[in-house]
Amino acid sequence: MATPQDTPFPPSPPAESRREFLAGRAATAVAGALAVASLGGCGPASPPAQEGSAARRWGMVIDLRRCVACKACVASCKSENKTPPGVAYNVFIEEEQGTFPYVRRVAFTRPCMQCAKSSCAQVCPTGATYHRADGIVAVDYEKCIGCRYCIAACPYGARSFDYGHDYIEKAGNPYNEIPSSEYGASYGLRHKGGSPEGNVRKCTFCLHLQDEKGEYREPPACVRTCMGKAIHFGDLKDPEGVCVAHGEKMQALLAHRGNYRLKEELGNEPAVYYLPV
């Protein structure tokens, strides 16, 4: 079996995916001629494995001591998945503790926890939200009726309803011409009345970056963008599994400093762990 080490990061991504990456960047900056020019070849080189590999349980270990609170993870998620305004797969949460002058800032990035016992898939009436074999919780946009029960049920606020907002409302503007690559670009361009508008959307650990075997060709956007190398991403099932971006052993990371998961008491069993500051 191909392990993530076989494809060291930064792997040289296929030309197309590089172009798509550039397109994403342009979207967060000023969309202009550059973006329009890079339209042609968006979408991953190979179709993603729909159900993922049962041998894997993809998860994150987020080292808060390494995080500098630059929020690049949020920006890169926006550009990777081209999420419209009001839809966030990944947010950066900051809280202040204490009273001046004895204050401390608590901050962490919050992707979807890809819970092993997810509330969202449990309550979804249509099974549109489901668990893939590799533990990633995905949404079948064609099944989803947009009831938003999953939003009400997710304890991590990790889901957003696509209300159909655009960065620029005028039709035909460059922002709206850049397809999203999520789910293998099958829902690339949004259009009025069609999915994913009217659906609930969420972080998928960038599953469109998996190859046909369900291994990551390159790490999820937030992971590869994190300049402090705070977000580690890899297989939690394999005791020797390593971070596909930085190569550390996932289990070792978890063991050495102690770790915690958000709202552990709810029993959702997130696949996202935090290492304390």
Partner: peptide, 14 residues
């Protein structure tokens, strides 16, 4: 519902 036309999914894909 965001997609009222898919209401039947509640039964079809219960």
């Amino acid at each position: 519902l965001g997609h009222p036309a898919r209401l039947a999914n509640v039964i079809l894909h219960m």
